[in-house]
Write a protein that binds this DNA or RNA. Structure first.
Length: 473
DNA sequence: ATGTCC
Protein backbone atom coordinates (compact mmCIF):
# COMPACT_ATOMS: atom_id res chain seq x y z
CA UNK A 1 0.00 0.00 0.00
CA UNK A 2 1.48 3.33 -1.13
CA UNK A 3 0.38 6.11 1.18
CA UNK A 4 1.65 9.59 0.43
CA UNK A 5 0.97 12.93 2.10
CA UNK A 6 -0.45 15.37 -0.44
CA UNK A 7 -0.92 18.34 1.89
CA UNK A 8 -1.33 18.72 5.63
CA UNK A 9 -4.02 16.26 6.83
CA UNK A 10 -4.55 14.87 3.32
CA UNK A 11 -3.07 11.49 2.40
CA UNK A 12 -3.57 9.39 -0.69
CA UNK A 13 -3.39 5.67 -1.25
CA UNK A 14 -2.46 5.19 -4.89
CA UNK A 15 -4.68 3.18 -7.19
CA UNK A 16 -3.57 -0.43 -7.50
CA UNK A 17 -5.09 -3.79 -8.41
CA UNK A 18 -8.87 -3.56 -8.81
CA UNK A 19 -9.12 -0.02 -7.45
CA UNK A 20 -10.90 2.27 -9.92
CA UNK A 21 -9.88 5.43 -8.05
CA UNK A 22 -7.39 6.25 -5.27
CA UNK A 23 -8.30 6.48 -1.57
CA UNK A 24 -8.02 9.82 0.21
CA UNK A 25 -7.46 9.76 3.95
CA UNK A 26 -8.22 13.03 5.70
CA UNK A 27 -6.36 12.77 9.00
CA UNK A 28 -3.51 14.14 11.06
CA UNK A 29 -0.48 11.96 11.70
CA UNK A 30 -1.71 10.77 15.15
CA UNK A 31 -5.16 9.86 13.75
CA UNK A 32 -3.57 8.14 10.78
CA UNK A 33 -1.40 6.15 13.16
CA UNK A 34 -4.53 4.92 14.99
CA UNK A 35 -5.98 3.76 11.67
CA UNK A 36 -2.77 1.90 10.86
CA UNK A 37 -2.78 0.24 14.29
CA UNK A 38 -6.31 -0.98 13.77
CA UNK A 39 -5.06 -2.75 10.67
CA UNK A 40 -7.82 -2.98 8.11
CA UNK A 41 -9.40 0.50 8.12
CA UNK A 42 -7.25 1.78 5.25
CA UNK A 43 -7.54 -1.52 3.39
CA UNK A 44 -11.33 -1.20 3.66
CA UNK A 45 -11.10 2.32 2.23
CA UNK A 46 -9.25 0.92 -0.77
CA UNK A 47 -11.71 -1.96 -1.17
CA UNK A 48 -14.44 0.69 -1.51
CA UNK A 49 -12.39 2.23 -4.35
CA UNK A 50 -13.16 -0.89 -6.44
CA UNK A 51 -16.92 -0.13 -6.60
CA UNK A 52 -18.28 0.31 -10.15
CA UNK A 53 -19.03 3.96 -10.84
CA UNK A 54 -17.12 5.38 -7.87
CA UNK A 55 -16.07 8.99 -8.50
CA UNK A 56 -12.80 10.82 -7.69
CA UNK A 57 -11.66 8.81 -4.68
CA UNK A 58 -12.85 6.74 -1.75
CA UNK A 59 -12.93 9.01 1.33
CA UNK A 60 -11.75 8.13 4.84
CA UNK A 61 -12.51 10.86 7.39
CA UNK A 62 -10.52 11.79 10.54
CA UNK A 63 -12.62 9.49 12.76
CA UNK A 64 -12.32 6.52 10.37
CA UNK A 65 -12.29 3.05 11.85
CA UNK A 66 -13.18 -0.54 10.99
CA UNK A 67 -16.74 -1.26 9.87
CA UNK A 68 -18.79 -3.87 7.98
CA UNK A 69 -17.12 -3.88 4.56
CA UNK A 70 -16.75 -0.11 4.48
CA UNK A 71 -14.93 1.94 7.10
CA UNK A 72 -17.05 3.86 9.58
CA UNK A 73 -16.10 7.44 8.79
CA UNK A 74 -16.20 6.82 5.05
CA UNK A 75 -17.78 8.41 1.99
CA UNK A 76 -18.25 6.85 -1.45
CA UNK A 77 -19.94 8.76 -4.28
CA UNK A 78 -20.99 6.54 -7.19
CA UNK A 79 -22.46 7.73 -10.48
CA UNK A 80 -26.23 7.33 -10.70
CA UNK A 81 -25.51 6.35 -14.29
CA UNK A 82 -23.60 3.08 -14.18
CA UNK A 83 -23.01 3.00 -10.42
CA UNK A 84 -24.11 0.70 -7.62
CA UNK A 85 -25.58 0.78 -4.14
CA UNK A 86 -23.96 -1.24 -1.35
CA UNK A 87 -25.80 -1.69 1.98
CA UNK A 88 -22.43 -1.96 3.75
CA UNK A 89 -21.71 1.61 2.66
CA UNK A 90 -24.69 2.82 4.68
CA UNK A 91 -24.51 0.51 7.65
CA UNK A 92 -26.81 -1.55 9.82
CA UNK A 93 -28.23 1.37 11.79
CA UNK A 94 -29.81 3.18 8.85
CA UNK A 95 -30.05 6.94 9.53
CA UNK A 96 -28.37 6.69 12.85
CA UNK A 97 -28.00 10.38 13.54
CA UNK A 98 -27.88 13.27 15.93
CA UNK A 99 -30.16 16.16 16.71
CA UNK A 100 -29.64 19.11 19.00
CA UNK A 101 -32.45 20.97 20.74
CA UNK A 102 -31.90 24.42 22.16
CA UNK A 103 -33.74 25.66 25.23
CA UNK A 104 -34.15 29.09 26.82
CA UNK A 105 -32.63 27.73 30.04
CA UNK A 106 -29.23 28.56 31.46
CA UNK A 107 -27.00 26.11 33.29
CA UNK A 108 -27.84 27.93 36.52
CA UNK A 109 -31.54 27.10 36.02
CA UNK A 110 -30.79 23.39 35.81
CA UNK A 111 -28.01 23.15 38.37
CA UNK A 112 -29.21 21.37 41.49
CA UNK A 113 -32.01 19.71 39.51
CA UNK A 114 -29.84 17.33 37.47
CA UNK A 115 -30.97 14.19 39.28
CA UNK A 116 -34.67 15.05 38.86
CA UNK A 117 -34.10 15.83 35.19
CA UNK A 118 -32.15 12.69 34.38
CA UNK A 119 -34.69 10.56 36.29
CA UNK A 120 -37.59 12.11 34.39
CA UNK A 121 -35.93 11.65 30.99
CA UNK A 122 -35.00 8.07 31.87
CA UNK A 123 -38.62 7.35 32.83
CA UNK A 124 -40.06 8.90 29.66
CA UNK A 125 -37.70 7.46 27.06
CA UNK A 126 -37.48 3.67 26.88
CA UNK A 127 -33.83 2.72 26.47
CA UNK A 128 -31.69 -0.36 26.11
CA UNK A 129 -32.73 -3.34 24.08
CA UNK A 130 -36.29 -3.62 25.39
CA UNK A 131 -39.48 -2.74 23.58
CA UNK A 132 -41.77 0.23 23.74
CA UNK A 133 -41.56 3.85 22.63
CA UNK A 134 -42.67 7.28 23.83
CA UNK A 135 -45.23 7.53 21.02
CA UNK A 136 -47.68 4.65 20.71
CA UNK A 137 -48.06 3.57 17.11
CA UNK A 138 -50.00 0.83 15.42
CA UNK A 139 -49.35 -0.90 12.14
CA UNK A 140 -51.11 1.79 10.02
CA UNK A 141 -49.17 4.54 11.79
CA UNK A 142 -45.93 2.73 10.99
CA UNK A 143 -46.80 2.58 7.29
CA UNK A 144 -47.28 6.37 7.36
CA UNK A 145 -43.99 6.91 9.17
CA UNK A 146 -42.12 4.71 6.68
CA UNK A 147 -43.64 6.63 3.77
CA UNK A 148 -43.22 10.24 4.90
CA UNK A 149 -41.24 10.33 8.18
CA UNK A 150 -41.50 13.65 10.02
CA UNK A 151 -44.53 14.70 7.94
CA UNK A 152 -46.51 11.89 9.56
CA UNK A 153 -45.26 13.01 12.96
CA UNK A 154 -46.40 16.57 12.27
CA UNK A 155 -49.82 15.50 11.00
CA UNK A 156 -50.30 13.26 14.06
CA UNK A 157 -49.46 16.16 16.39
CA UNK A 158 -45.98 14.96 17.38
CA UNK A 159 -43.95 17.61 15.55
CA UNK A 160 -44.07 21.33 14.85
CA UNK A 161 -43.59 22.55 11.28
CA UNK A 162 -40.45 24.30 12.58
CA UNK A 163 -39.04 20.87 13.47
CA UNK A 164 -39.34 19.80 9.83
CA UNK A 165 -37.84 23.08 8.65
CA UNK A 166 -34.71 22.46 10.74
CA UNK A 167 -34.10 18.84 9.80
CA UNK A 168 -31.94 17.36 7.05
CA UNK A 169 -34.22 16.61 4.05
CA UNK A 170 -37.08 18.03 6.18
CA UNK A 171 -37.17 14.59 7.78
CA UNK A 172 -38.43 12.79 4.68
CA UNK A 173 -36.74 10.70 2.01
CA UNK A 174 -38.69 8.76 -0.67
CA UNK A 175 -39.41 5.69 1.45
CA UNK A 176 -41.25 2.68 0.03
CA UNK A 177 -43.10 0.90 2.86
CA UNK A 178 -43.84 -2.06 0.58
CA UNK A 179 -40.10 -2.71 0.24
CA UNK A 180 -39.62 -2.98 4.03
CA UNK A 181 -39.56 -6.64 5.09
CA UNK A 182 -42.39 -7.82 7.32
CA UNK A 183 -39.96 -8.79 10.11
CA UNK A 184 -38.55 -5.28 10.13
CA UNK A 185 -42.01 -3.75 10.46
CA UNK A 186 -42.85 -6.07 13.33
CA UNK A 187 -39.75 -4.89 15.16
CA UNK A 188 -40.41 -1.22 14.49
CA UNK A 189 -44.09 -0.88 15.30
CA UNK A 190 -43.53 -0.45 19.01
CA UNK A 191 -40.20 1.41 19.03
CA UNK A 192 -41.07 4.97 17.96
CA UNK A 193 -39.38 7.08 20.61
CA UNK A 194 -36.87 4.61 22.03
CA UNK A 195 -33.20 5.31 22.57
CA UNK A 196 -31.52 1.95 22.01
CA UNK A 197 -28.18 0.86 23.35
CA UNK A 198 -24.46 1.04 22.55
CA UNK A 199 -23.23 4.53 21.77
CA UNK A 200 -26.74 5.98 21.60
CA UNK A 201 -27.61 8.53 24.24
CA UNK A 202 -29.79 11.41 25.25
CA UNK A 203 -27.69 14.11 26.86
CA UNK A 204 -28.46 17.45 28.46
CA UNK A 205 -25.52 19.74 27.77
CA UNK A 206 -24.42 23.30 28.44
CA UNK A 207 -22.71 25.48 25.87
CA UNK A 208 -19.27 26.29 27.27
CA UNK A 209 -17.29 27.72 24.34
CA UNK A 210 -18.12 29.72 21.24
CA UNK A 211 -15.61 29.84 18.39
CA UNK A 212 -17.71 31.69 15.81
CA UNK A 213 -20.13 34.10 17.48
CA UNK A 214 -22.03 35.10 14.33
CA UNK A 215 -22.71 31.50 13.26
CA UNK A 216 -23.57 30.46 16.83
CA UNK A 217 -26.07 33.30 16.88
CA UNK A 218 -27.58 32.11 13.59
CA UNK A 219 -27.93 28.62 15.12
CA UNK A 220 -29.59 30.16 18.21
CA UNK A 221 -26.73 29.15 20.51
CA UNK A 222 -25.19 31.20 23.33
CA UNK A 223 -22.72 30.57 26.12
CA UNK A 224 -24.19 28.98 29.26
CA UNK A 225 -27.29 27.83 27.38
CA UNK A 226 -28.77 24.40 28.06
CA UNK A 227 -29.17 22.22 24.97
CA UNK A 228 -30.15 18.58 24.50
CA UNK A 229 -28.39 16.18 22.15
CA UNK A 230 -30.12 13.00 20.97
CA UNK A 231 -28.06 10.28 19.28
CA UNK A 232 -30.16 7.39 18.03
CA UNK A 233 -31.19 5.55 14.89
CA UNK A 234 -33.71 3.22 13.32
CA UNK A 235 -33.48 0.56 16.04
CA UNK A 236 -34.39 -3.02 15.18
CA UNK A 237 -36.27 -1.95 12.04
CA UNK A 238 -33.24 -0.49 10.25
CA UNK A 239 -31.04 -3.35 11.36
CA UNK A 240 -33.50 -5.88 9.93
CA UNK A 241 -33.77 -3.97 6.64
CA UNK A 242 -29.99 -3.99 6.23
CA UNK A 243 -29.62 -7.63 7.16
CA UNK A 244 -32.38 -8.90 4.88
CA UNK A 245 -31.22 -6.88 1.88
CA UNK A 246 -27.61 -8.00 2.26
CA UNK A 247 -28.94 -11.58 2.13
CA UNK A 248 -31.12 -10.73 -0.86
CA UNK A 249 -28.15 -9.12 -2.69
CA UNK A 250 -25.97 -12.15 -1.93
CA UNK A 251 -28.59 -14.55 -3.27
CA UNK A 252 -29.18 -12.41 -6.38
CA UNK A 253 -25.48 -11.98 -7.25
CA UNK A 254 -23.62 -15.08 -5.99
CA UNK A 255 -20.84 -14.76 -8.59
CA UNK A 256 -20.25 -11.13 -7.69
CA UNK A 257 -19.85 -12.03 -4.01
CA UNK A 258 -17.12 -14.52 -4.89
CA UNK A 259 -15.26 -11.98 -7.03
CA UNK A 260 -15.14 -9.16 -4.46
CA UNK A 261 -12.08 -8.30 -2.37
CA UNK A 262 -14.46 -8.55 0.62
CA UNK A 263 -17.90 -10.16 0.41
CA UNK A 264 -19.20 -7.48 2.80
CA UNK A 265 -18.95 -5.00 -0.11
CA UNK A 266 -21.83 -6.75 -1.90
CA UNK A 267 -23.69 -4.32 -4.14
CA UNK A 268 -26.37 -4.10 -6.83
CA UNK A 269 -26.37 -1.95 -9.98
CA UNK A 270 -28.58 1.14 -9.65
CA UNK A 271 -31.73 0.56 -11.66
CA UNK A 272 -31.88 -3.18 -10.89
CA UNK A 273 -35.11 -4.12 -9.08
CA UNK A 274 -33.27 -5.37 -5.99
CA UNK A 275 -31.27 -2.12 -5.80
CA UNK A 276 -34.42 0.00 -6.20
CA UNK A 277 -36.21 -2.05 -3.52
CA UNK A 278 -33.27 -1.59 -1.17
CA UNK A 279 -33.23 2.17 -1.76
CA UNK A 280 -36.96 2.39 -1.02
CA UNK A 281 -36.58 0.32 2.14
CA UNK A 282 -33.45 2.21 3.24
CA UNK A 283 -35.21 5.56 2.79
CA UNK A 284 -38.22 4.20 4.71
CA UNK A 285 -35.92 3.16 7.57
CA UNK A 286 -34.38 6.66 7.45
CA UNK A 287 -37.88 8.11 7.83
CA UNK A 288 -38.43 5.80 10.80
CA UNK A 289 -35.21 7.02 12.45
CA UNK A 290 -36.35 10.64 12.10
CA UNK A 291 -39.73 9.78 13.61
CA UNK A 292 -37.87 8.06 16.44
CA UNK A 293 -35.68 11.09 17.22
CA UNK A 294 -38.74 13.31 16.89
CA UNK A 295 -40.70 11.22 19.40
CA UNK A 296 -37.83 11.55 21.88
CA UNK A 297 -37.87 15.29 21.24
CA UNK A 298 -41.48 15.30 22.42
CA UNK A 299 -40.41 13.43 25.56
CA UNK A 300 -37.74 16.07 26.22
CA UNK A 301 -40.37 18.78 25.76
CA UNK A 302 -42.60 17.07 28.32
CA UNK A 303 -39.78 16.73 30.85
CA UNK A 304 -38.55 20.30 30.43
CA UNK A 305 -42.09 21.74 30.59
CA UNK A 306 -42.87 19.77 33.78
CA UNK A 307 -39.64 20.59 35.60
CA UNK A 308 -38.79 24.07 34.34
CA UNK A 309 -42.12 25.42 33.09
CA UNK A 310 -40.99 26.37 29.60
CA UNK A 311 -42.01 25.18 26.15
CA UNK A 312 -39.02 26.78 24.43
CA UNK A 313 -37.38 23.59 23.19
CA UNK A 314 -36.54 24.08 19.52
CA UNK A 315 -34.74 21.93 17.01
CA UNK A 316 -31.41 23.42 15.96
CA UNK A 317 -30.83 20.68 13.40
CA UNK A 318 -30.86 16.92 12.79
CA UNK A 319 -28.12 15.13 10.81
CA UNK A 320 -27.85 11.60 9.39
CA UNK A 321 -24.73 9.53 10.02
CA UNK A 322 -25.63 6.44 8.01
CA UNK A 323 -27.45 7.03 4.74
CA UNK A 324 -27.03 7.29 0.98
CA UNK A 325 -28.50 10.19 -0.96
CA UNK A 326 -28.71 11.41 -4.53
CA UNK A 327 -26.72 14.61 -4.86
CA UNK A 328 -24.99 16.66 -7.53
CA UNK A 329 -21.23 17.04 -7.20
CA UNK A 330 -18.54 18.51 -9.42
CA UNK A 331 -16.06 15.97 -10.75
CA UNK A 332 -13.35 17.11 -13.17
CA UNK A 333 -15.19 20.37 -13.69
CA UNK A 334 -18.50 18.70 -14.60
CA UNK A 335 -21.68 18.27 -12.59
CA UNK A 336 -22.37 14.58 -11.96
CA UNK A 337 -25.43 12.98 -10.36
CA UNK A 338 -24.11 10.65 -7.68
CA UNK A 339 -25.39 8.43 -4.91
CA UNK A 340 -23.32 9.57 -1.94
CA UNK A 341 -22.89 6.74 0.60
CA UNK A 342 -22.11 8.27 4.00
CA UNK A 343 -21.32 5.75 6.70
CA UNK A 344 -20.37 7.26 10.03
CA UNK A 345 -20.08 10.55 8.18
CA UNK A 346 -22.01 13.81 8.40
CA UNK A 347 -23.20 15.89 5.48
CA UNK A 348 -21.50 19.29 5.84
CA UNK A 349 -22.86 21.54 3.09
CA UNK A 350 -21.37 25.05 3.06
CA UNK A 351 -23.08 28.43 3.09
CA UNK A 352 -25.05 29.07 -0.08
CA UNK A 353 -25.84 25.42 -0.86
CA UNK A 354 -29.54 25.14 -1.81
CA UNK A 355 -30.06 22.11 0.46
CA UNK A 356 -29.09 24.07 3.58
CA UNK A 357 -32.28 25.19 5.39
CA UNK A 358 -33.18 28.79 4.66
CA UNK A 359 -32.49 29.90 8.23
CA UNK A 360 -28.86 28.78 7.92
CA UNK A 361 -28.25 29.41 4.20
CA UNK A 362 -25.84 32.26 4.87
CA UNK A 363 -23.65 30.44 7.41
CA UNK A 364 -23.69 26.78 6.35
CA UNK A 365 -25.38 23.64 7.56
CA UNK A 366 -25.09 22.83 11.26
CA UNK A 367 -22.92 19.75 11.84
CA UNK A 368 -23.58 18.05 15.19
CA UNK A 369 -20.61 16.11 16.42
CA UNK A 370 -20.93 14.10 19.62
CA UNK A 371 -17.89 13.29 21.71
CA UNK A 372 -17.76 10.31 24.02
CA UNK A 373 -19.84 10.11 27.19
CA UNK A 374 -18.69 12.62 29.76
CA UNK A 375 -16.28 14.57 27.53
CA UNK A 376 -17.77 17.19 25.27
CA UNK A 377 -19.52 17.61 21.96
CA UNK A 378 -19.36 20.17 19.17
CA UNK A 379 -21.52 22.09 16.78
CA UNK A 380 -19.69 22.84 13.54
CA UNK A 381 -20.79 24.52 10.33
CA UNK A 382 -20.44 22.95 6.88
CA UNK A 383 -17.14 24.28 5.50
CA UNK A 384 -16.23 26.08 2.29
CA UNK A 385 -13.97 23.24 1.15
CA UNK A 386 -16.25 20.27 1.89
CA UNK A 387 -17.68 20.11 -1.65
CA UNK A 388 -14.23 20.12 -3.21
CA UNK A 389 -12.57 17.69 -0.76
CA UNK A 390 -15.10 15.25 0.73
CA UNK A 391 -18.34 15.32 -1.31
CA UNK A 392 -19.77 17.77 1.24
CA UNK A 393 -18.97 15.66 4.31
CA UNK A 394 -17.11 15.65 7.59
CA UNK A 395 -16.56 13.39 10.61
CA UNK A 396 -19.40 12.10 12.80
CA UNK A 397 -17.81 11.68 16.22
CA UNK A 398 -14.75 10.77 18.20
CA UNK A 399 -14.41 7.33 16.63
CA UNK A 400 -13.95 4.17 18.62
CA UNK A 401 -10.43 3.33 19.76
CA UNK A 402 -10.94 0.17 21.83
CA UNK A 403 -13.33 -2.67 21.08
CA UNK A 404 -16.41 -3.08 23.25
CA UNK A 405 -14.91 -6.25 24.74
CA UNK A 406 -11.64 -4.53 25.53
CA UNK A 407 -13.46 -1.57 27.10
CA UNK A 408 -15.55 -3.88 29.30
CA UNK A 409 -12.35 -5.51 30.54
CA UNK A 410 -10.69 -2.18 31.36
CA UNK A 411 -13.51 -0.07 32.83
CA UNK A 412 -16.09 -0.44 35.57
CA UNK A 413 -19.47 1.27 35.26
CA UNK A 414 -19.70 2.27 38.93
CA UNK A 415 -16.25 3.88 38.97
CA UNK A 416 -16.94 5.79 35.79
CA UNK A 417 -20.32 7.06 36.95
CA UNK A 418 -18.83 8.13 40.28
CA UNK A 419 -15.97 9.98 38.61
CA UNK A 420 -18.31 11.75 36.19
CA UNK A 421 -20.67 12.61 39.06
CA UNK A 422 -17.76 14.32 40.85
CA UNK A 423 -17.37 16.43 37.70
CA UNK A 424 -21.05 17.38 37.82
CA UNK A 425 -22.20 14.90 35.16
CA UNK A 426 -25.16 12.65 36.03
CA UNK A 427 -25.21 9.41 34.03
CA UNK A 428 -28.22 7.11 34.27
CA UNK A 429 -27.99 3.88 32.31
CA UNK A 430 -30.03 0.75 31.86
CA UNK A 431 -26.92 -1.40 31.57
CA UNK A 432 -23.61 -1.13 33.39
CA UNK A 433 -21.93 -3.02 30.58
CA UNK A 434 -22.95 -0.29 28.15
CA UNK A 435 -21.44 2.39 30.38
CA UNK A 436 -18.12 0.50 30.42
CA UNK A 437 -18.22 -0.01 26.64
CA UNK A 438 -18.77 3.71 26.16
CA UNK A 439 -16.07 4.90 28.57
CA UNK A 440 -14.33 8.04 27.30
CA UNK A 441 -11.07 6.07 27.19
CA UNK A 442 -12.58 3.74 24.58
CA UNK A 443 -12.79 6.64 22.13
CA UNK A 444 -10.32 8.77 20.22
CA UNK A 445 -9.78 12.39 21.12
CA UNK A 446 -12.80 14.27 19.75
CA UNK A 447 -10.87 17.55 19.95
CA UNK A 448 -8.27 16.22 17.52
CA UNK A 449 -10.96 14.98 15.09
CA UNK A 450 -12.63 18.40 15.19
CA UNK A 451 -9.30 20.23 14.89
CA UNK A 452 -8.57 18.36 11.65
CA UNK A 453 -12.08 18.99 10.26
CA UNK A 454 -11.70 22.69 11.06
CA UNK A 455 -8.17 22.91 9.64
CA UNK A 456 -9.28 21.23 6.40
CA UNK A 457 -12.20 23.66 6.14
CA UNK A 458 -14.75 20.84 5.67
CA UNK A 459 -16.55 21.50 8.96
CA UNK A 460 -15.59 24.52 11.04
CA UNK A 461 -15.88 25.05 14.78
CA UNK A 462 -18.88 26.99 16.08
CA UNK A 463 -19.55 25.87 19.66
CA UNK A 464 -18.57 23.29 22.24
CA UNK A 465 -20.82 21.76 24.87
CA UNK A 466 -20.15 19.88 28.10
CA UNK A 467 -22.51 17.22 29.50
CA UNK A 468 -24.89 17.92 32.40
CA UNK A 469 -26.78 14.65 32.45
CA UNK A 470 -26.82 11.64 30.21
CA UNK A 471 -29.31 8.81 29.62
CA UNK A 472 -27.90 5.62 28.11
CA UNK A 473 -29.22 2.23 27.10
C1' DA B 1 -25.57 -1.05 15.97
C1' DT B 2 -28.98 -5.36 17.13
C1' DG B 3 -35.48 -9.03 20.44
C1' DT B 4 -26.06 -9.56 20.96
C1' DC B 5 -28.94 -17.16 17.72
C1' DC B 6 -34.66 -18.53 13.49
Amino acid sequence: MHLTELTENVHEIAREGEMRVPTRVFASEPLLEKMREEGRTLEQGSNVATLPGIQKYSVVLPDGHLGYGFPIGGVAAVAMDGGVVSPGGIGFDINCGVRVLRTDLDYDDVRGHEQALVDRLYDLVPCGLGRGGYVRTDRDDLEGILAVGMEWMRDAGHARQADLDHCEESGRLPGDPDAVPEDAKRRGVNQVGSLGSGNHFLEVQRVTDLYDAATADAFGLREGQVVVMIHSGSRGLGHQVCQEYIRRFERTYPDLVDSLPDRQLVYAPLGDPVAEDYLGAMYAAANFAWANRQAMTQAVREAVADLFDTDAVDLVYDVCHNVAKEETHTVDGEDVEVLVHRKGATRAFPAGHPDVPEAYRDVGQPVLLPGSMGTHSYVLAGGERSMELTFGSTAHGAGRLKSRTQAKREYTAGDLQQRLRSEGVYVKARSGATVAEEAPGAYKDVDEVVRVSDALGIGTKVARMRPVCNVKG
